[in-house]
Design a protein around this nucleic acid. Structure first.
Length: 268
DNA sequence: AGCCAGGAAGTCC
DNA sequence: GGACTTCATGGC
């Protein structure tokens, strides 16, 4: 595919934003990305991007995955200019978008993420993909890649086997989630309102408020979800002692949350 | 070496 | 319903 211009997208920022864990760094501003059984290599040069796929796959898979039909410039322009911390955060991480990832992959990834660090989460997920995902090839005679295992691929995996992925005490949560997926949890989540989706998730073993909100935001693309993790807690305590003014950003709180999170994670 | 990690369940009161 | 403890273990 020929080079295309995309605004408000920075691959390095997204790769390090803690919302996706399987991007493979291939070089400067260049990543291999797997989603929905497809593989693509993307390279960035300023606001110019090269996708290794053809136009049809781009329109069918990657335009949606990178959320390219959403205008993030408009959203950023609505940030309160008197909110200096948020303004700096947006300036620092303005190339972050909320990806439209696979729901099941997000559920498992963030179930694993609790009280965990991002490099370790990536290692665990890579292990799960290698062990239980489908092996595919980037192109004819190309290098192999592994898809994220589906619920069916995991239904006979024991807690002990999950521990081999380095999940620690989180391993016991996974068989329970697989079971719920087999019982149709995913389709119910997709059909639910945000508050109902949250409740459904909260009733799953090992999923609490923060993980539920992450799944709503990253897996269901409910951008009003505002996950509060350790980083956001520290930001709130320091910069928003009266609480963050979520009301000012109706429907896009989750995107704002991402700017704040990334700034605290990678900025100073 | 020791602290921390995109927290949640269990156990008190 | 809140505060406090426990939970595995790799990364840095």
């Amino acid at each position: 595919m020929e080079s295309i211009k995309i605004k408000d997208l920075d691959l390095d920022q997204i790769a390090n934003s803690g919302q996706c864990f399987t991007w493979e760094p291939l070089g400067p501003r260049r990543y291999g990305v797997e989603a929905f059984g497809h593989w693509v290599e993307v390279e960035q040069n300023g606001d110019q991007f090269r996708f290794s796929c053809d136009q049809e796959e781009f329109d069918q898979v990657w335009r949606g995955y990178f959320d390219l039909d959403t205008d993030y410039g408009e959203l950023k322009a609505a940030v309160d200019p008197e909110d200096h911390y948020l303004s700096q955060a947006v300036c620092f991480g303005g190339g972050i978008r909320v990806l439209r990832q696979d729901l099941w992959e997000v559920m498992v990834s963030f179930l694993i993420s609790q009280n965990n660090n991002i490099p370790r989460i990536k290692n665990s997920i890579a292990y799960l993909c290698r062990s239980y995902g489908e092996k595919k090839y980037r192109c004819k005679r190309g290098q192999a890649f592994y898809t994220f295992p589906k619920p069916d691929d995991l239904k006979n995996v024991t807690e002990e086997e999950f521990k081999a992925a380095g999940l620690g005490y989180r391993a016991k949560y996974l068989p329970a989630l697989v079971q719920k997926a087999e019982e149709g949890l995913l389709s119910r989540l997709k059909a639910a309102e945000l508050s109902d989706a949250r409740q459904l998730l909260l009733s799953s073993y090992g999923i609490g408020k923060k993980v539920a909100d992450c799944i709503c935001l990253f897996g269901l693309h409910q951008k009003e979800a505002f996950p509060v993790d350790t980083h956001i807690q520290k930001i709130l305590a320091l910069h928003y002692p009266k609480g963050f003014p979520e009301d000012r950003y109706p429907g896009v709180q989750g995107v704002i949350q991402q700017y704040l999170f990334y700034y605290h994670l990678k900025g100073k």
